[in-house]
């Protein structure tokens, strides 16, 4: 059973704020985790995991120069931009 504190920790890892929804989310997520429990009873000790439905290994292509987006296009959708750059809040502390 996950607690409200667990949910808040998961929210932080997810870069989300849960605020007043924490309790409701705790209940909902616990309900889903209950259902996942049915998987634990299955013996999978000899079973290999499937990460991809179609087996695929090392897809290679020629290393050729191809057209790509212009810097102008790349920053076009940025919420805050300057010249060819995205503007973000200060990352390094001033003090």
């Amino acid at each position: 059973m996950l607690t409200k504190q667990d949910i808040e920790a998961i929210a932080h890892l997810s870069r989300l704020e849960v605020g007043e929804d924490a309790e409701k989310l705790t209940e909902q997520i616990n309900k889903l985790l209950d259902d996942f429990a049915s998987l634990q009873a299955i013996d999978t000790s000899e079973i290999k995991p499937t990460s991809h439905a179609v087996p695929m290994y090392n897809v290679f292509r020629e290393d050729e120069v191809r057209p790509s987006l212009s810097p102008e296009d790349v920053i076009k959708n940025g919420p805050d931009t300057m010249d060819d750059a995205f503007v973000v809040p200060r990352i390094v502390d001033t003090d």
Partner: peptide, 8 residues
């Protein structure tokens, strides 16, 4: 675990 059961 889910990936293994996916194989099944």
């Amino acid at each position: 675990k889910a990936q293994k059961v996916r194989t099944l």
